[in-house]
């Protein structure tokens, strides 16, 4: 949907000028880890129930049109909604029926992948991962926001005086909290660190200049990752990683970290990852 109709100029324009738009994530609404409020969950259940009564297509992965007062009006299963013409037809029928006053989007468009709130002394990392293939699973990249609290990122740095040529291994636990997201776009996103079989990130100081140290990072990763949720047939992720860490030895400021894969595969599928700090000092 995102790479298809929800990236189509006609759909975007029609949604913005005539609709109020919202998307929901099923994991937030159903199950023991649901984070949506009871009121939100109740509303989604009501929309489903109204759809059943109207004999509409109802399901968890669906596009719905609600009336301006919030009642279920029309729907498409995602397999149909992913067809831009079918989605446009449903939207145009609604416009024809409800004759909304068209204009600017009611909610101002904004980046939907945004950094989480974090303490000022936390290191916020943004990870982008994309399979080299294109098509359904490779159309747009996967992203993760990783927040390293001060106690965590401090473990990435060496103790004491820093000298050119100095080498050290980055803390395994902190490294794992980053590398665990080194996988391409997959339907499964259960990214626990116990999937990691082997990792190493080794730093070497290249320069110390005016109180700023620059170190290169080289490493490898081997972990198991399942493509579909709930399955027990993981494929190995193998990656070689290169990066740069800059920091002020003995100074309180945040370090800057960049990591990229040189080579990475999930099973036979090649992919690329880039990680960077949100704000590079």
């Amino acid at each position: 949907m995102r790479a298809g109709p929800l990236s189509d100029t006609r759909v975007i324009a029609l949604l913005n000028r005539a609709f109020v738009c919202v998307y929901t994530v099923n994991e937030d609404y159903v199950g023991k880890n649901a984070t949506a409020s009871p009121e939100e969950r109740k509303e989604l259940q009501r929309i489903h129930q109204e759809g059943y009564k109207k004999k509409l297509s109802v399901g968890t992965v669906h596009a719905y049109v609600l009336t301006p007062d919030g009642h279920t009006h029309d729907s498409l299963h995602v397999a149909s909604a992913a067809n831009t013409d079918r989605l446009l037809a449903m939207l145009r029928r609604a416009v024809e029926q409800f004759r909304p006053k068209e204009g600017k989007p009611i909610v101002a468009p904004a980046p939907q992948s945004a950094p989480p709130k974090a303490p000022a002394d936390a290191l916020v990392l943004h990870l982008v991962s994309r399979g080299d293939d294109r098509g359904s699973w490779g159309e747009f990249p996967g992203e993760n926001w990783i927040v390293l609290q001060k106690k965590a990122w401090q473990k990435l740095l060496p103790d004491g005086e820093v000298k050119v040529g100095q080498k050290w291994d980055l803390d395994r636990e902190v490294a794992a909290s980053i590398l665990t997201y080194f996988y391409p776009q997959t339907e499964n996103n259960h990214a626990t660190t116990d999937r990691i079989e082997k990792l190493s990130l080794r730093a070497k100081v290249l320069s110390v200049d005016r109180g700023k140290a620059t170190a290169r990072i080289d490493g490898t990763l081997r972990m198991q990752h399942v493509f579909y949720p709930g399955r027990k047939n993981p494929d190995p992720v193998d990656a070689t990683v290169t990066g740069v860490l800059t920091f002020g030895p003995g100074k309180p400021g945040l370090p800057s970290l960049q990591l990229v894969t040189e080579k990475a595969t999930h099973g036979k599928r090649p992919f690329k990852v880039a990680v960077r700090t949100l704000a590079v000092e």
Partner: peptide, 17 residues
């Protein structure tokens, strides 16, 4: 605003891919 609502429900997080 008297506008119909477009609701898309899905598994996973479409915003981060």
């Amino acid at each position: 605003h008297h506008r119909p609502i477009f609701l898309f429900t899905m598994d996973g997080r479409i915003n981060t891919g």
